[in-house]
């Protein structure tokens, strides 16, 4: 068998698969819905707390509204700063893509870490506020506090997973760099 006939046979076998294809737009729809839901949820929380602060001004409610505005703007601004240099499209080749992946993973890990500490800070502030005046601790605010604790736990878990991803991406990046430097096909990328 000549090489070309061998290649032709491989190509014929390769293209012979007839497995049914999945719906490829599911994740795109999910991502769009999630982005809209997050925007609506954040806007609703900020709007309700602001309206309540204006209608029934009290130190607690005003503090909550200011805190929500501050957190939204601060975390959003920090996320934009941390993601600088990672906005590029992913249609890059080889080493450039590996470097971009590494920068993205590092930026995401920093955002998660920041969100965790902001969440923890908010919990501490709320606990101090409730300790100062227990009459504000209604079921609603108790649920908000519980949600914040759960969110902090989720951020912690995501942070650990992201650290593992950073280590893996760094290792692959170093492997790629070594391959390019030595010109070898050592290929430990499997």
């Amino acid at each position: 068998m000549t090489l070309d006939a061998e290649l032709a046979a491989w190509r014929e076998d390769w293209h012979s698969e007839v497995e049914p294809l999945p719906d490829v737009k599911r994740k795109i729809r999910q991502r769009q819905e999630r982005a809209v839901a997050a925007a609506i949820l954040t806007s609703t929380c900020v709007a309700i707390s602001t309206i309540r602060a204006f209608r029934r001004p009290s130190p607690f409610i005003s503090g909550l509204a200011v805190g929500l505005w501050f957190t939204t703007i601060f975390v959003g601004g920090c996320a934009c700063c941390l993601r600088r240099g990672t906005w590029k499209q992913c249609a890059r080749a080889g080493l450039a893509y590996a470097e971009l992946s590494y920068r993205r993973a590092v930026a995401k890990a920093r955002i998660i870490r920041l969100s965790f500490w902001v969440c923890l800070g908010t919990i501490v502030v709320l606990c101090i506020a409730f300790a100062w005046d227990w009459k504000h601790l209604t079921i609603g605010y108790g649920m908000i506090l519980a949600a914040l604790v759960a969110e902090a736990a989720v951020f912690r878990r995501c942070g650990r997973r992201k650290e593992r991803e950073i280590a893996e991406t760094k290792q692959q990046l170093d492997n790629l760099k070594d391959q390019l430097a030595t010109g070898s096909e050592g290929l430990s990328l499997s």
Partner: peptide, 19 residues
């Protein structure tokens, strides 16, 4: 495998405006 296919489609969707 299906998840990977979804990820590829999502990456294409996000990169297409920059093509």
């Amino acid at each position: 495998r299906e998840e990977l296919m979804q990820d590829i489609a999502l990456a294409l969707w996000q990169a297409l405006p920059h093509f």
